[in-house]
Design a protein around this nucleic acid. Sequence first.
DNA 1: GTGAGATAACTAACTAGTTAGTTAGACCGG
DNA 2: CCGGTCTAACTAACTAGTTAGTTATCTCAC
Lengths: 212, 212
Amino acid sequence: MVTREVAQPRSETRDRILDAAGQLFAEQGFGGATVEEIARRAGVNKAMLYYHVGDKAELFAAVVSAHVGRIRTLVAAAVAESDEPRERLGAIPRAFARAVHEHPYLPQLMLREITAGGPNMPDVAIRQIAEIMLMTKQVLDEGAARGAFRSVSPFATHLMLVGAMMFMANALRLRDRFGDKLPVPPSSQLDLETLSEAVLDIVLDGISRKGN
Amino acid sequence: MVTREVAQPRSETRDRILDAAGQLFAEQGFGGATVEEIARRAGVNKAMLYYHVGDKAELFAAVVSAHVGRIRTLVAAAVAESDEPRERLGAIPRAFARAVHEHPYLPQLMLREITAGGPNMPDVAIRQIAEIMLMTKQVLDEGAARGAFRSVSPFATHLMLVGAMMFMANALRLRDRFGDKLPVPPSSQLDLETLSEAVLDIVLDGISRKGN
DNA sequence: GTGAGATAACTAACTAGTTAGTTAGACCGG
DNA sequence: CCGGTCTAACTAACTAGTTAGTTATCTCAC
């Protein structure tokens, strides 16, 4: 599960399969989701799935690559929109939030694969994740050069912003289970956007150069 | 998979089964791990697993509960050791780090279950997680009352500390895959402790009341 | 324009292998 | 000889992947 980048031609059927697969892989995991059920949800015969995409592993790789590529594009565009270090850094989690808004099953899908150690993560996806992390590093370096940020670990900062967000998106699904016994605002202001803004607020405060 | 708290009597065999199950559920996930393999790794006959613990779901619940309970104990003890708000907050991720040190497969196991939406998470475990989150809230409230911290979302702060750490512990396993194309210090100072200290540093800075 | 032949998209049914859970009975210390 | 602990062997259900064959659509010589 390492090299598989042969881009199949797009087709309506293929897209339906990929979307159904994304949902089901997110909900059930790679092992939990059955090819049969993916095909059923996409409204196609199981054999068509093999015809249009490939085996289960190829299907998974295709889904993950598509999403990671989309996120990379969104982040790059969002970062380019401003020139101010703080805004540029904030653009990164906000781009993630937009991607999640488009495909709500995305955090579950991604976290599942990361947790599994990426056994089905294609090289293209790895490369794109590295590119996204590089963007965070560039924004931080630039901010430091301009005197806006103090020097911090870019890896830790990136994982704080993105990792906490991914974790939150998934943890929120457990919310109902907590019932009354939780020290959490019930649900009104408990959406992902509010939470990631709170994280961004703390991070920006934590890395900004003080003493003005 | 919600109420199952009947504490079986401990036994050496049962402990071996639980430990093997923890490792395998972490490595392969609930669906991916096979009962056969868990039994083999524990060095017992498969039927003994049903005799000593119960079916696969009960086994999983027992493993998760044991670990969450252990973390709760560690966190409570660590927080109680100091009186100074900043140190008390720092004690929380450090207690997690210690738990992870004891059982390296723990972040993978926990994150897998959280990502899955907790379908096998027993109520006891949920209650204990709530208690841990309450401790963070208390430390933050107390720190705010003492003028050390500004007012921040306890939920976001907790998830930042713990979530980022869980995410990192899992992301680190992908490190090798990045090869050269990564903006990350190669591996020397890339352990979980260093990373969580970096996170703690940023968070403490970000939530501390400025203007002394 | 029309009919033969090619081709892409699809289906139903099957195979081979795996897995959770059960059961009938063996072993053994007290 | 009895209760707790254990084993080997089984079954019932499920699943990834294949295959033989069907339908619909297009192509192009005549």
